[in-house]
Lab assay of single mutants.
Amino acid sequence: KMTIRVKGKELARRIAKEMKDRNLKVEIHEHGDEVILEIE
């Protein structure tokens, strides 16, 4: 399990899509400006 902190929703969406393309499970937690992606 891996956690990534990202500034900006646009970048977070791009990373999430990339991870889904690799068949990984992604959970997205938004905290205002910061987005936390949990990847399994």
Rank of each mutant, 00 (worst) to 15 (best):
E38C: 14
M19C: 11
M19W: 05
I28C: 15
A16I: 13
T3Q: 12
I39R: 00
A12K: 01
K9P: 11
E38K: 09
K17P: 01
M2S: 12
I28K: 02
I4T: 02
K1I: 08
M19Y: 12
V6Q: 01
G8K: 06
E27P: 00
G32K: 07
K9M: 14
I28G: 03
V35G: 02
V35S: 05
D21P: 00
L24W: 10
L11S: 05
K7A: 09
H29K: 12
E27M: 13
V35D: 01
E27I: 15
V26P: 01
K25N: 11
K1S: 13
H29W: 13
R14W: 05
M2H: 14
R22W: 06
I15V: 05
T3D: 05
R14D: 07
H29P: 01
H31C: 15
K7C: 15
E18W: 12
K17Y: 01
E38V: 15
I28E: 03
E30Y: 15
K9V: 12
H31W: 14
R14N: 09
R22D: 04
I28L: 09
E38I: 15
M19R: 01
K17T: 08
E40Q: 12
R22E: 05
V26F: 06
D21A: 09
A16M: 09
L24Q: 04
I28F: 08
L24S: 02
M2Q: 13
E18K: 11
V26W: 01
I39S: 01
V6E: 02
R22F: 06
M19D: 01
G8E: 11
K25Y: 08
H31Q: 12
E10I: 04
M2T: 14
N23T: 02
L11D: 08
V6P: 00
R13G: 11
A16D: 02
K25Q: 08
K20D: 04
I28T: 04
V26D: 00
E18C: 15
D33I: 06
E40P: 05
H31N: 14
L24Y: 13
R13S: 12
K17H: 07
K7E: 06
L24A: 03
E27C: 14
K9S: 07
K20Y: 07
N23E: 06
I28W: 14
E34Q: 10
I15G: 01
E10F: 03
K25E: 07
I39C: 15
N23I: 03
R5T: 14
E40F: 15
H31E: 14
I39T: 02
K20G: 09
A16V: 11
K9R: 12
E40Y: 15
I4W: 01
M19G: 02
M2I: 15
I39P: 00
T3M: 09
G32I: 05
T3R: 13
K20C: 15
I4E: 06
E30R: 08
G8S: 14
E18Q: 10
K7T: 08
E27D: 09
M2P: 06
R5F: 04
K20L: 13
K25V: 10
G32H: 03
K17F: 01
A12T: 00
E38L: 14
I4F: 02
A16W: 02
E30H: 09
M2R: 15
A12I: 04
E34K: 05
I15C: 14
V26Y: 04
R13I: 13
E40H: 11
I4D: 05
I39G: 01
T3S: 07
